[in-house]
């Protein structure tokens, strides 16, 4: 990176941070900090945490997201909160991935999915305006997006036809994958790739298999109260109407642990402190994580994080 490119990227990052902070200040959302080194890691089989040695004590884990700590703050009575923090995920390195990346994560009490997703899209819109990139917001359900781009409703397909569809789209050994992974592949390959890039899309109501930490829909058990934001051809944010049922959450974690053992992935213990906090009572809330580096890519109009980050992962 030349000196002028360096200064350009540093200044743009500073503007993005300042704009985000003023966005939340205007809405009276409180900025907080939570530990980056936690005593537990996420069980999600698709996320591998970095393990950090701590002399002869049990190891610590670099947080793959501040979600659990922020929810514990909410349980303890915190108001609407946001955080701009580094998050860490092993092996996620590529043009649009860095194993160490910056998240803007926030939680809004009493918000529903429509409110939190609208707010997220508005923040993205404001951040893009820093360089006069003005994109409209469009809301579409996961189902309708599939219908439009694929001409069929993915959620209604049998496992067999999902496998056939994925194979046709070039997935090798599709028959070995569960529904959720097939959804991931087909949606990315056939839907996200075809979404117009000059629109901020709110895609909402994901399949129940992909609920993660979201509540299932009250009106349709096949759907989860989860949304994602897409712009520029890729994912920018992921949010939930947060699951508050401790037993159901524990059950989902238990499932993760099971899948980990089946796939030979590192064993991860369930974060019982988090479960205990849920049991104590998480207030009704919606939350979202926005990848700041991804937004930076669009605003800077470059293709790869290498052109953006002063210290790229491969060249530390």
């Amino acid at each position: 990176m030349s000196q002028s490119e360096l200064i350009k990227t540093l200044k743009l990052r500073a503007e993005l941070l300042a704009t985000a902070r003023s966005f939340f200040a205007q809405r009276s959302v409180l900025e907080v900090e939570t530990p980056v080194l936690g005593a537990s890691a996420v069980t999600d089989p698709n996320i591998q945490s970095f393990v950090v040695a701590d002399e002869n004590k049990p190891p610590r884990y670099l947080q793959s997201s501040p979600e659990f700590f922020m929810k514990r703050l909410l349980v303890d009575g915190a108001p609407d909160i946001y955080q701009i923090t580094k998050a860490f995920r092993q092996a996620e390195a590529g043009a649009r991935h860095n194993p160490e990346f910056t998240l803007i994560e926030w939680y809004r009490r009493q918000f529903d999915l429509a409110q939190i997703s609208q707010e997220t899209a508005e923040l993205v819109q404001q951040l893009l305006l820093i360089r006069e990139i003005s994109l409209p917001i469009q809301r579409i359900s996961y189902r309708a997006a599939c219908q439009q781009m694929l001409g069929l409703d993915l959620i209604e397909q049998s496992l067999q036809s999902l496998i056939q569809l994925a194979t046709k789209q070039g997935l090798v050994a599709a028959e070995k994958l569960p529904r959720a992974a097939l959804y991931d592949f087909i949606f990315d390959q056939a839907v996200v790739a075809r979404l117009p890039q000059d629109v901020i899309y709110i895609v909402e109501y994901y399949p129940a298999e992909q609920a993660s930490l979201a509540q299932l829909s009250q009106t349709d058990a096949q759907l989860a109260e989860r949304f994602e934001i897409f712009a520029g051809g890729f994912e920018l944010a992921n949010g939930f109407l947060e699951l508050r049922d401790a037993d159901e959450q524990r059950q989902r974690f238990q499932q993760d642990v099971q899948i980990r053992s089946e796939q030979g992935l590192p064993t991860v213990a369930i974060d019982e402190t988090f479960i205990a906090a849920l049991r104590q009572g998480l207030p009704a809330c919606a939350g979202v994580a926005l990848g700041l580096d991804r937004v930076h890519l669009i605003v800077a109009q470059v293709d790869s994080l290498d052109q953006l980050l002063p210290f790229s992962w491969s060249a530390l």
């Binding site: 698709n46 092996a91 590529g94 043009a95 997935l171 991931d184 990315d188 994602e228 994912e235 992921n238």
Partner: peptide
Amino acid sequence: NILVKPGKGQAF
């Protein structure tokens, strides 16, 4: 070779 990975979900 390109890594494709949703924030929550399977990496490819």
